[in-house]
Design a protein around this nucleic acid. Structure first.
Lengths: 241, 241
DNA sequence: GCAAAAGTGTTGGAAATACACCCATGT
DNA sequence: ACATGGGTGTATTTCCAACACTTTTGC
């Protein structure tokens, strides 16, 4: 790095270095989590690349020269699934030299949670569909590593913020909510303590409705009070299970 | 994105897209925290770029085509400061379109903690020196945003892992340790409860030495028992101040 | 009436907090 | 002797974990 020690880099010197750095391509990969049948799911497609034919892959693509990273992530999610109107959050950037078999590609991983029932997939190319997270073994590229990292982050974030609700229907029972937390965190929780904790937070609105078509006593339905949550300065003290 | 819906991308189609993505350059910026005179510090240099002449900047440079991201971060830190043998951790990737005035440059931020006393800077080009974190106002590029993000992450991580010790001399008093936590977290802590907490973790080794040259009763010196910490399966339950 | 899950309170232990006095050193 | 920060213990409160029985519905 010749220019590293110069006091002021000229535009020209910088351009020369940029050309060298330009040999690195940039992509985004989306790890989309959902929740259905009491299991945590992830959206995968069959790999684009011949070398990984048959393997499953995250929803990814190259970043365009004139779009921001977040923008790229939303575009790719929309292109691959037809969906918009979800939160995407950056997880980590992966840039090992050999991670892509053809080119040097650095990828920024994004993570999202969507409600499987609510957001029906509109595009199903490349065999896009939901996979149980615990059925995932090998994947294309280093996507298994990216997936594992994203899942760990999800587990961490779901303890700190009320993200889980975006995975549930608008109306949900406490049992569904608990199932969700148990699935994401991969733990068993005490029902009474779980209820106590959520009721004490006071962000659940009792809808005075109950489940139907269950072969047992129906549970009451609730929705999450996003308005109150926003107003209370994000006063979510975290979940310590 | 023409190829997005094809089932299998050929190498050639992919190459075409890569060329377009190649117009994006990739850099790494290091946010190096230190601790001295009971204040949290950060290492900055004068900006390389003419447009930002006079402004302070993080330690950054472009990523070489044949090096990994972590590798680049370590190289840049070494080049800019002469230092190695520190932990670097990725923080976030910043890719807004206008963030660099000349080119499209996406940057991966890394964060590190170094011991100011222990690691004397060997290179001082571009006016490299330590700045009080609370004296930082505007910076070159979007580096203020990157800095703020890194500081928030530091505050979060220091509650979860025993990172702080890398900012202190090998031998430190409990007062120094408490000052460190107070500086990073920007809070006041109760001395007795602080001691209780750290002693109960049992990761401090009493060196049977005391401070010298202090105009008051000298404090005992300790070091952090990294071996025990590693062995105990990272049994750090976090710090809840 | 039976199976299956909903709903509900209490108690004991652990951890966090608040708080005040004596001690060792340098000047 | 005095100024400065080091070192220590206890009482209170708060939070978390463990735990069992009754209720409601579908079949």
């Amino acid at each position: 790095m010749v220019a590293a020690k110069s006091n002021i880099k000229t535009y020209k010197a910088f351009q020369t270095e940029v050309e060298s750095s330009n040999r690195i391509a940039l992509s985004v990969d989306c790890v989309i989590f959902g929740f259905d049948e009491n299991k945590l799911k992830v959206l995968l497609i069959r790999s684009d690349l011949k070398k990984y034919e048959g393997k499953w892959s995250l929803l990814g693509d190259l970043v365009l020269p004139d779009e921001g990273l977040d923008e790229a992530a939303y575009r790719i999610l929309k292109q691959r699934t037809g969906l918009s109107d979800v939160f995407l959050e950056q997880v980590h950037t992966f840039g090992e030299i050999g991670r892509h078999p053809v080119n040097r590609v650095v990828t920024v991983a994004y993570c999202s949670l969507i409600n499987v029932q609510h957001h029906k997939l509109k595009i199903l190319d490349n065999e896009l569909h939901w996979h149980d997270v615990d059925s995932i073994s090998d994947m294309a590229f280093d996507h298994k590593i990216i997936f594992d990292t994203s899942l760990s982050q999800l587990q961490k974030r779901v303890r700190e913020h009320p993200l889980g609700f975006s995975l549930l229907p608008n109306k949900f029972s406490l049992r569904e909510l608990q199932n969700l937390y148990e699935a994401i965190l991969n733990v068993k929780l005490d029902r009474r303590n779980f209820r106590k904790k959520f009721f004490s937070m006071d962000f659940l609105i009792d809808l005075d409705e109950v489940e139907t078509d269950v072969p047992h006593r129906p549970g009451k339905l609730y929705r999450f009070d996003y308005v109150k949550y926003e107003k209370s300065a994000k006063n979510w003290n975290g979940i310590a299970f």
